[in-house]
Amino acid sequence: MKVLAAMSGGVDSAVAAARAVDAGHEVVGVHLALSRMPGTLRTGSRGCCTIEDSSDAWRACEKLGIPFYVWDFSERFKADVVDDFFSEYAAGRTPNPCMRCNEKIKFEALLDKAIALGFDAVATGHYAKIIELEDGTRELHRAATWTKDQSYVLGVLNTEQLAHCYFPLGDTPSKDLVRAEAAERGLSVAQKPDSHDICFIPDGDTRGWLAEQIDMEPGPILDDQGEQIGEHEGAQAYTVGQRRGLKLGRPAPDGKPRFVLEIRPKENTVVAGSRELLDVDIITGIRLSWAGPPVAEAATGEWFEIDLQIRAHADPVPAKAKVVEDEDYQILVELAEPLKGVAPGQTAVMYQGTRVLGQSTIDSARSRHYQPA
């Protein structure tokens, strides 16, 4: 099999490429240049896609004896990930740029180009598994160990994309074993820190970055009864569930902290209230996609049981869902137990056991205690 190994410059992608070579595949490494002005060095474990990462990816390919290329996807990344990020915040939603990058860059732009060049599959260092059924169709499943499972961020993959995905680390029990294997292979990235935070905001100051991209104006912070309790510097910089940064001028009547309940960008208003009011029971979703064959109930509109996960490292919660024909949303989810701080714009990934069924973008989240305007 002819395999294109996506080389981030980290230890996971390096070992994934090495295993693809060991499996006898014809492997070519490629690093994606996603920024036109990449930083020369990473700051500890913050950020990724820097010149340092590109050099690390090249050294790994040299060690493995495979060709190495750099592909410039910076324009596509800016349009599909960066611009989408601040337009979503400007609309009062909380986007997940890593999901959008996987959807639009790593498993759309990259995969399309790989197939066009004659590659059979794209290999990445994600911790997830693909199971092929007797009829040849593929399903996406959690990795062998849930502590490193990354199936959530792959929930955007569709059936056609799964047919060309290759995840060599899916059965690996721990990251420590991957690092040990990298060291045994003489890969210089064996002890390189994992990247975290948003890659195009490497200092981690999302609010400061948004302030440079979006026109913000001061406005009122209201309580859940509509009474003004403070003032903000720009509603778009807040997200549902946020506690820090509210700077309210008066304490709550019960003396407990307040949290952001709602953002109203058209009114430039933030609503804050008690933690209890963050409980969400009903979620509606848009941009629905299936990771493999849809469940049978998708065609009939019947309810089906799922576990729902709304963040990469969150615990899934039991729920039931049904596909609906509605002009505002495509799927309705009723939670068996409430979730807190669910924000429009987040990604809701559906599971049955270890299988990833698919995902949708949260359009609304409702609570029996508090109804957003």
Rank of each mutant, 00 (worst) to 15 (best):
V271D: 07
V271S: 05
V271P: 02
S274N: 09
S274I: 05
R275G: 10
R275H: 14
E276H: 12
D279R: 14
D279A: 15
D281I: 00
D281A: 05
I283S: 07
I283C: 09
I283P: 09
T284Q: 01
G285C: 15
R287P: 00
S289V: 08
W290I: 05
G292Y: 12
G292I: 11
P293T: 14
P293G: 00
P294W: 12
P294I: 11
P294M: 10
V295T: 10
V295Y: 00
A296D: 07
E297I: 13
E297K: 10
E297T: 10
E297N: 11
A298M: 02
A298V: 12
A298Y: 03
T300Q: 04
E302D: 15
E302V: 00
W303E: 15
W303G: 12
W303L: 13
F304D: 04
E305T: 15
L308M: 10
L308T: 05
I310K: 05
R311G: 11
R311W: 11
H313K: 14
H313A: 12
H313N: 12
A314T: 01
A314G: 06
A314M: 06
P316H: 06
V317C: 04
P318L: 02
K320L: 04
A321G: 06
K322R: 15
K322Y: 04
K322I: 08
V323K: 07
V323M: 03
V323Y: 04
V324Y: 06
V324A: 01
V324T: 07
E325F: 01
D326E: 11
E327D: 13
D328W: 05
D328S: 15
Y329L: 01
Q330Y: 02
Q330C: 02
I331L: 14
I331Y: 02
L332Q: 12
L332Y: 04
V333W: 10
V333P: 11
L335I: 04
A336G: 13
A336M: 10
P338D: 01
P338C: 03
P338V: 03
L339R: 13
L339W: 07
L339C: 09
G341S: 06
V342P: 05
V342W: 03
A343Q: 06
A343M: 07
A343H: 14
P344R: 06
P344D: 08
G345F: 15
G345D: 14
T347M: 12
A348E: 03
A348W: 09
V349C: 04
Y351H: 11
G353W: 04
G353D: 06
R355V: 08
Q359W: 00
Q359A: 11
T361L: 02
T361A: 01
I362P: 09
D363Q: 14
S364P: 01
S364C: 04
A365V: 06
R366M: 14
R366V: 14
R366K: 15
S367L: 07
